[in-house]
Design a protein around this nucleic acid. Structure first.
Lengths: 227, 227
DNA sequence: TAGATTGTTAATCGATTAACAATC
DNA sequence: TAGATTGTTAATCGATTAACAATC
């Protein structure tokens, strides 16, 4: 059982995104401080994370982009791929289906569900949509362990319960209500309205975000001009 | 100038959401441990946050829900209200417009922008949509300080730059690319694909999220059964 | 070599929680 | 009163960064 912090995984996922962009531009090697600037963390953090991945760099040359991508793939991706289910084909559900269409071979949305009779039994961005009554059977049949909830708030907990009962172990919830889930089920609540309210607070001219600090203080220096 | 941490604001926004739900159910008072269970923080954290808001409770009775909501409103909301601009009317943009339609009187999306000639000069969920060429003038004219970016990745930074030049101080970015912004502009990147990859990692049966700890350890206890 | 970067440690901060006296 | 909760402090953890020897 591999146990890691959520923040670490978030950073690794972000590195991968950035490295893909660099690779697409033909960049073959990268220094810790370059990636640090892009990911907005310290260079030491990047080096620590790569050390944990057993991805070595060399002084002057830096890290090999292809080797890093391979190390990240080996650590982050399920070898056999992962299938996800999406519940609720509103505008948000459609946006997510569109975004994922054919983009990540190892992480595909294999089934979508809705209660609207006009939406079921057809394809959305080549993903089949089924009535929610079929959710337990389809999720089990496809071995889905990952759920995306894009239904209205009132229906979110019921959708989550159904998914969990059918074997789902991770949920991304976009409904504006925190989900209850048993131990062992990872839930990420993405509340767009709450994010907007947070940003609105800091967008006011008399408000400022406290800069994140921490870490060792610089050593006090003898004054260079002292004679 | 009020300086607070981002996490604190996120908690206060969440408390408000939960208190609204309680108020709607007719609940008049609440204890710190009740709200703590809903918000998934410690009761001590809730009490500390309310102390900072100068919102007092009484032993046995707890905190008055209406008084808390008023204190949160006074702290979080701009007295004169805030207007936001949304750039990019795809599925995600429409989802956000739908969600906000008439919901928060103090935080309204006042203008939307798109490059598609078929979408401009009409209303989406009663929000007027203008061509992006008009963005600088409209944002200035409406005094907008808050921007929501729901354009494709390739167009995100340009949209951000335009908004910032026109006076926007806070951005919520849904494009899958981190935005560069000058000091004083608060940026929240919400990367749905990265969130999904993170959850996918923890949804695998051999992976577990490290439980967040910290805080004072329980005092060692003398064994009660010792004679 | 000289210079820059990596691998790693030491230091330190913010965040969080247990604890408990004061209070209703 | 007795019992539970609030207001507040003390303790402690994880996260983060400066520093620097080893290395290319």
């Amino acid at each position: 059982m591999i146990v890691v912090s959520e923040k670490t995984i978030a950073r690794l996922v972000q590195y991968r995104r950035l490295l893909h962009q660099l690779a697409a531009r033909g960049v073959a090697s990268v220094h810790s401080h370059e990636l640090a600037a892009l990911a907005q963390v310290s260079a030491a953090q990047v080096r620590r994370d790569f050390m944990a991945l057993i991805a070595a760099g060399t002084p002057m040359h830096g890290y090999d982009v292809a080797a890093l991508l391979e190390a990240l793939r080996a650590f982050l991706d399920a070898p056999e791929g992962q299938a996800a289910a999406l519940v609720g084909i509103g505008n948000l559900g459609k946006a997510i289906l569109t975004y994922f269409a054919g983009r990540r071979p190892k992480l595909v949305i294999a089934a979508a569900f809705d209660i609207d009779p006009a939406k079921v039994h057809r394809l959305f961005r080549s993903v089949p949509c089924y009535p929610v009554e079929e959710l337990p059977a389809r999720v089990r049949e496809l071995g889905i362990r990952l759920g995306i909830i894009t239904v209205p708030a009132a229906a979110a907990q019921a959708a989550a319960d159904q998914l969990i009962r059918a074997g789902v172990r991770g949920l991304v919830n976009f409904a504006p209500v925190p989900l209850q889930a048993p131990e062992g089920v990872f839930v990420e609540d993405i509340d767009i309205a709450m994010s907007l309210e947070k940003v609105a607070f800091f967008a006011r001219s008399d408000r400022a975000a406290e800069p994140a600090r921490g870490g060792r203080r610089p050593a006090p220096r003898l004054h260079a001009a002292a004679v």
